[in-house]
Amino acid sequence: MKHAIAVLSIVLFVLAMSLLLTVAGGLYIPSISVRPLAELYLNTTYNPWNREFTALSPEGVTAIVWDYRGLDTVFETTVFYLAIIASIAIARGIRKYSALPGKELGLSLIVRTVTRITTTLIVAVAISIALHGHLTPGGGFQGGATAAVAPLLILVAFSHYFLLKRGVSKDLMLVIRSLGLAGIGIVAIATYLVAVASGLPGFVLQNQPKPLSPVNLPAYLGGQLISGTLWFFNIFEFFAVMAGFTIVFLLLAIPERIARGGGEK
């Protein structure tokens, strides 16, 4: 009976949504008045002939996330920061956990060998996603979330002890994450500080020169396009997100028996 109700409600939902989409596609077409917004972003995201309004990044999404709407993303990063702080606060009763090797550690030899290969690939792909975030789809959060899968796989396939023995501890990850967040803050106010020091008007989260304020971060580094602040934001966000997720998994991997006892005696 319960299964029949579940099937019926899912089928009805799918049919209702498809009917709605079919009917709405014929009745409602977005008006022409919303198109200039898209045209504005597409015309200015990489436009070297209009240096006062461009973000100088061929990737429109990253330009909107970190330049046009940079303050929103800074607050999103703050939300993620608070979530990690909350999970560390929940685990505050665990004083000490060394994960000493008891008997056999980790999964079988085949799984461990495959994990050795795939974690290398995952980290390489993650770094390329983060460093190319201003040129191709991707960015700091995407790269950081991808890189966080690597310590997770090591944690499952090898052991907690394997990570702790190589120095990947909660405290080190907390330091990396704090440095990443501090870097985001410094890049956000870098142009403002430069402008104040040279007596010009300046903005917080400014990337390229604006009509009122001529200061900017370099758009090219050694002949390579780095799009001013976007590249630095992506790098720092990569480290902050990667270390933040790793902290959560290191805390979750502590066995419940030890977590309840407040750590090892």
């Binding site: 990253t62 996603i129 789809p137 991707g138 960015g139 959060f141 995407q142 979330a145 991808t146 966080a148």
Partner: peptide, 8 residues
């Protein structure tokens, strides 16, 4: 962009 964050 969503794919790259959704997959991991």
């Amino acid at each position: 962009d969503i794919v790259l964050v959704y997959v991991p």
